[in-house]
Design a protein around this nucleic acid. Structure first.
Lengths: 198, 198
DNA sequence: ATATTTACGTACTTATTGGTACAATAAATA
DNA sequence: TATTTATTGTACCAATAAGTACGTAAATAT
């Protein structure tokens, strides 16, 4: 890998930093809140830069979603591993949903899913991907829970996964909307008891 | 109340019809989907008319919400009367949520609540009012259910009402997003079993 | 008829939108 | 030093946004 000298003007665009700041803005205010103009103004980048580097708002959001998965959701999914009981897994999920702890409120994926139809093709596809990956994790948790007798065995594990997804997403939306995290936590805990054996 | 002859040019503006069409548009596409320009174009009214009669988009949406309450939500709330068992009431709610039957999909109030913060002052206040009225109905249902032993007695009836509200609103959002009504119905039914005595 | 009062909508303003042409810049090469 | 190639952002475009000044229409009153 020789350091081939390139011929033209050297790149100064900080792509990584741009994606980070984009993620922050999208996460904080939702993926549709900002116009491209305002976006570039706040990011301190020129509009042609955005179109050149990301092909537009759609591409930028898609990349921000990728980073969100890597830095937030993948670690969460890892918390749902087979070494944990169903109760521990749901506890971790509820803790994540009712209080992410770190920077912005709510979940970028949840916010994006809420406006799925108004997203561009690239971001839309990314949202579907991430949602599916998350649901796969939910399904694994549900199935293991059923095998261990920790979850009602008379419901389909895919249905249970979708139910889990619904409830967690609802919790995330409520927290993002500013509702009391303790209330959200309590409601989500109640909702998940519906999955337990009677 | 004598029919006093008014002095100026007679009114030709069809206020009632305007509100009806506004309700239809808001209901179908959500309260923030249309610009004032596009709105007036579709309604066949001039912009000054809208500002004169309703004070702007905010006032128009507020009035549309009023009509929505009168024509849709109040009848629903009436279905939750004391003559029905808890199971019958929730059944009616789920039927409403998972398939409104008539014209547009979803619930205008649910859609409006989802974007509560971006609404104008009048519409925002109306949304709060209607949501509160609905929750009062939910609380009455919950409390009666508890008195009859149809609902877990170890949870606060206000909390149960908020839970009911959450689950019904979630169902409405999902139907509005185009999800399969049968799936939504099944998930909502499961969620509401959490309120039943064990 | 003329003036007065009320209702209405054309046509305008200013600001912002998504999107891009093109000139300026900065390096390697000749 | 001049040329070529690559990168960047100023400065523009047409379309549309929210909001309103003002002239016209249609009735009653004088």
């Amino acid at each position: 890998m020789a350091e081939k000298k390139k011929r033209g003007r050297p790149r100064t665009f900080e792509r990584d930093r741009a994606v980070s700041r984009a993620l922050d803005h999208y996460w904080r205010e939702g993926p549709l809140a900002l116009s491209v103009n305002e976006f570039c103004r706040r990011m301190g980048m020129s509009k042609p830069s955005l179109y050149r580097e990301f092909g537009g708002e759609d591409g930028l959001l898609a990349e921000a979603l990728d980073r969100y998965w890597g830095s937030v959701l993948a670690p969460i999914a890892a918390l749902l591993g087979p070494d944990r009981s169903f109760a521990e897994s749901t506890e971790a999920l509820i803790a994540f949903a009712s209080d992410p702890g770190d920077t912005p409120k709510g979940c970028l994926l949840a916010k994006s899913r809420g406006t799925r139809d108004r997203l561009g093709p690239a971001a839309g596809a990314r949202v579907d991907e991430l949602a599916r990956a998350l649901r796969n994790a939910y399904e694994a948790v549900s199935r293991r829970g059923q095998e261990r007798g920790e979850v009602r065995s008379d419901i389909n594990s895919e249905f249970a996964a979708r139910y889990l997804d619904t409830q967690v997403t609802t919790a995330l939306h409520k927290v993002a909307a500013g509702e009391d995290p303790d209330e959200v936590r309590a409601q989500t805990e109640l909702a998940l008891t519906a999955l337990l054996p009677s």
